[in-house]
Design a protein around this nucleic acid. Structure first.
Lengths: 387, 387
DNA sequence: ATGAAAGCGCTAACAT
DNA sequence: ATGTTAGCGCTTTCAT
């Protein structure tokens, strides 16, 4: 049988399971567990991923020496280092980020939750986030809530489980409560919200100029000569919708117009809602001669419907929408919009979050605004005054 | 262990169930039951994330007991379990996936590398991938190569470092070599390619019907009466481009047409390339009366240019493009396309990969085809025969 | 039914 | 300059 490594007796040694493919023994005499050294450790050709141990074994050095070499520490013999780096390359060694992160207590990973990738706005914001991430030491994990609150909550849990160092979020249409985010903040994880924000949370937010953008668009419609401007807004609880509605009202106020609630519609801003809303507008005693949609694509969709019915744009109805998009530009007539520069929003979001993660001393939360600009196109040019 | 509250001995104290979440003890020496004052239960308000140890300490049990409770193992006292789950909830405990993955040697994470999120095709594929992921135990990490080969290589390294269980990739325009993917395959990590594949790699690939789609579109143009059909193709080395070009040629062959290389252009399929290519076509002695673009948006872009020059579509030039898109549908004239159903591609990609990860016995690699369909719209309807 | 301890891959403090 | 070891959070034998 096997000789005990401690008392060198054979009698009391029994088998005690396998550990990492090696037989484990137990000596009943001196109560010691020991593992038999593998006599042949020549076959370094692993089938899976190489570890620091594989590299160490390949050269007969200790793992700490390998770690030192790989991390470019000073207290190491240059020759040893060279040999180690060589061996690491031959074994195609790659550090295990799981192990590193577990040890360090941080992952250098940022979680991003967006409602919908297919929405061009979010795709563009994502591109901006990615761009800043590429120039940093952070990588990102993107989750899609698909406009579902429960999915959003699952996403937050997943990201917490992954131990992300920070979170970027724009909420689903359904999300009105905020306990799931509160929990994250309570754990001390920095959170930055953008676009669809929840104002009750004391976080940094990156916003576009919802108020000003709407004001500018509606003012533009007024100056173009529109008498009855309707608005197709979104879910009432949504902060950006409220702000855009405020902008709409403010423009009315500036020009001494009365606000007629009949011309204000709250919808779910989905493509399929457009037909109903448009029909409603047309059913009014005095249908609007200007329509402002909170979402640019809703504007295009309505123009499509209007065109099919032979309504002349902008002569009979002028259109304007919030946010730019290739469809707004290529559709005929092209849609007047307020461009809110989505990539810039993504970049800013990421910069703020990185600052938050790195400056442990959190600076006071506030709203960061990205400036947008009015883009006048065919859909609104009735020939009136262009400001 | 615990000191008896009555006789102050330690030796005879044993655990005796849970009462309202508190450990109950029994002293064999003085026959007394007692419940431990939750003295240490109060200072559990951690600032960071709770661990299994925190939960264990909260109740004075060992971490293995907590682990058993959390993982729904059988050999545990129901009361203990209840108390542990309660404490875990109060502490907002969430498992550390890093630690779990490190231990298990798998992460239940799949890496996805795409060239460009803003490209609607990839966004839609991603949505399909996500959809299948949501119904599985896998989560995904998405990386964007931004059409850069070096970024793509960095992405693969990052994902390997994260120890993803599998990889989904569609290559950048620049990528023609494949060592970086070969390395991953050598590590035993399943890889599935889609759309922009590298044929030299012996992987499962999910493809659309590039050949058939092109054939159908070109045949359609021929049947509509086009005499000189030009093609704006993409990078020559790209497999899908080759296939689409083959489909184009095959249609010519079927109808006994001669292939004129003058009408074949290889480009970088970027928006800005369209003007040059269109100008080139128009500069020919006999300009084309039908243009087939490998990318739908290139078709729209060219139609835009053509419209600006007063060229009538489809009378003077008919258009057709590969792949559907909202722009193709909404532009005027709307573009005839071959819809290759991007979400279905994403779903299939994910299903194949999951099968590969779970069936350790790898089934032989092959190309999975997703069926597409011809969508005839205004841009091609010269009034000829519609098949 | 519960606890103790090994080990996943890595880093860093502590030896030597 | 290099090796040994503890520990990050967790699961899983093994022992009680």
């Amino acid at each position: 049988m096997q000789k005990c490594t401690k008392c060198h007796q054979v009698d009391g040694v029994i088998k005690a399971g396998f550990i990492r493919g090696n037989q484990r023994f137990f000596c009943k005499i001196c109560s010691q567990h020991f593992i038999l050294e593998n006599a042949f450790k020549s076959d370094l050709k692993k089938n899976g991923q190489s570890t620091i141990t594989d590299v160490a074994n390949a050269l007969g050095v200790s793992i700490s020496t390998v770690s030192r070499a790989l991390n470019d520490k000073s207290d190491i013999n240059p020759d040893t280092k060279k040999a180690i780096l060589q061996a690491a390359m031959e074994l195609d060694y790659r550090p295990n980020l799981l192990a590193q992160s577990l040890h360090k207590g941080k992952t250098n990973t940022i979680g991003v939750i967006i409602p919908d990738v297919e929405h061009p706005f979010f795709a563009k914001v994502l591109a901006g986030i990615q761009q800043v991430a590429n120039g940093s030491c952070f990588r990102i994990i993107v989750c899609h809530s698909n406009e579902s609150k429960s999915a959003e909550i699952l996403n937050t849990e997943t990201l917490i489980d992954c131990r992300v160092d920070g979170l970027i979020i724009s909420h689903s249409k359904e999300t009105t409560s905020f306990e799931h985010i509160k929990k994250i903040i309570d754990k001390g994880i920095p959170v930055v919200q953008f676009d669809r924000i929840i104002t009750e949370l004391n976080t940094h937010n990156v916003m576009h100029q919802d108020y000003k953008g709407s004001f500018d668009l509606v003012e533009h419609l007024i100056l173009q000569g529109c008498e009855r401007i309707a608005i197709m807004s979104g879910p009432q609880e949504m902060y950006i919708c409220k702000q855009r509605l405020e902008g709409y009202k403010a423009a009315f106020q500036k020009y001494g117009r009365e606000i007629n609630e009949e011309y204000i519609v709250h919808s779910n801003i989905a493509k399929k809602d457009c037909l109903d809303v448009f029909d409603y507008f047309m059913s009014l005693e005095y249908p609007p001669d200007g329509i402002f949609t909170i979402l640019n694509r809703n504007g295009v969709e309505m123009m499509k419907i209007a065109k099919e019915r032979g309504i002349r744009i902008p002569q009979e109805i002028a259109f304007a929408g919030f946010g730019d998009d290739i469809l707004a530009e290529y559709f005929e007539p092209s849609l007047t919009v307020f461009n809110h520069f989505p990539p810039a929003i993504g970049q800013e979001v990421m910069k703020v979050l990185i600052r938050l993660i790195e400056n442990k001393t959190h600076f006071p939360a506030y709203n960061h605004f990205i400036e947008g600009e009015l883009v006048v196109r065919q859909s609104s040019q009735k020939g009136g005054y262009i400001k």
